[in-house]
Design a protein around this nucleic acid. Structure first.
Lengths: 111, 111
DNA sequence: TATACTTGCAACCGATCGGTTTCACGAACT
DNA sequence: AGTTCGTGAAACCGATCGGTTGCAAGTATA
């Protein structure tokens, strides 16, 4: 199942996990110590984050370190910029409209 | 009920609605025409977006225009930047560590 | 080899989500 | 005034979510 990055960051615990492992790669147990939920719950969150490739695993003996793949987050940034561009384009068209109206007003006064 | 902006953009239809009204304020009916779902479903999405103040309503006769409040999206951007800063700080600490190791190596060679 | 540690996975549970259907209210048209 | 149009709200439904509990597998340690 292909996961969505936006869905991944929708959960506050997951966002906290992301911020946590942004500092340094960590094991599920170490991560779980920072929260009130069980280790298994954290494991499920990590599974979601792995499925949308926001994190990668690295086995070290019997421990598994989870590392943040920050490049995947540019997808969010890209969408934000896209919306903002549309929004700004909107303003440009508004400016154009206002200019047009002003022009019409000018021609109106000529009559 | 206080809504979460991250939760609001988690749904793909909601993201599409946001992109749509970024272009220009629209009525629920006009928005619904762009999707395969019912008008009521769109209305529920608009309710969610309104609850987290991502959009505002403006009554015009019997129509209601929904306008995007793009300022609310900076919260997402702020979080992204925060994570990225932590991540970069991580690299700085790595650089510091490498520098320290190099220093140790230098002193090692002096002996 | 036996035991402890670290982890993932499956099953289950209540809550929430996204959707449809139905209805109610207010504004505009005839 | 009666009808149509535009909309929100409530009730319901199947699916998914986030969480817990219990278990199995692999690795280290004695």
């Amino acid at each position: 199942m292909r996961r969505d990055v936006f869905q991944a960051i929708a959960d506050p615990t997951r966002r906290a996990i992301i911020a946590l492992i942004a500092l340094q790669a960590m094991t599920p147990n170490a991560i779980a110590e920072h929260f009130e939920t069980s280790r298994q719950a954290v494991s499920k969150h990590l599974r979601v984050l792995t499925e949308c490739e926001l994190v990668t695993q690295e086995q070290m003996g019997r421990e598994i370190y989870y590392r943040l793949e920050i490049e995947r987050m540019i997808e969010i940034d890209k969408w934000l910029e896209q919306v903002q561009q549309i929004w700004e384009g909107n303003f440009k068209r508004l400016d154009a409209l206002l200019a047009e109206l002003k022009q019409q007003d000018k021609q109106e006064r000529k009559k």
